[in-house]
Amino acid sequence: MAKQGESEKGRARPTLWQFFSVLLVVGTIAIGGGRSIIAMLERELVVRRAWLGREEFADTYAMAHIIPGVYSVNFGVILGFRFFGGVGALLAAIALVFPSFLMVLLLSKGYALLRHTQAVQGAFQAVAPAVVGMFSAILVGMGRTLLRTPLDAIMALFAFGGFLWFHLHPAFLLLAAGGAGYLLATAQRLGR
């Protein structure tokens, strides 16, 4: 399984085990969701170990956003595929997900046991609005980077209205937005 020394553009590649263990460490300690996972992977893979060039990193990052799923896990999966094929992809997903899976499992168990105590109920009653506040902050950031043109804003508005007032399924709204985007791009091309 070791493919050490195999190079692409003269770059040293890790062994499967090295790759897996770095991702496992990142999956265990990167608190703060996808953004901190990507930041840590950048430091570990590009800066410290030089397994990946900056351009390759950027390409992988862009691609991670266009396949379904969470971009941080997708990032590891794509790298795993590139380096080691299917086994690498599977191990990358496991390395990034398994540590938090175990922790959430433990917390879920604890939550199920303690949920009905007054203290836990009181604590979570105050945590719930805090979560809403944090999400609103995340939303402001997302809106600023993702809504660049008036067209984007219109798409967002339609999805918002369809979900909140008409109770349409989010997946349907996403597909409709994607379809509308495709039609607009095609119309623009034909109009030229």
């Binding site: 997302m142 809106g143 660049r148 984007d152 996403l174 937005a177 994607g178 379809g179 495709y182 091309r189």
Partner: peptide, 23 residues
């Protein structure tokens, strides 16, 4: 090139959906 538009539109829709969910 058309796919860029598709992803941009879908990501914009995600922002709208999330706003609905937060409300």
């Amino acid at each position: 090139s058309a796919m860029d538009r598709v992803w941009a539109a879908m990501r914009a829709a995600v922002v709208g959906l999330l706003l609905g969910a937060v409300i």
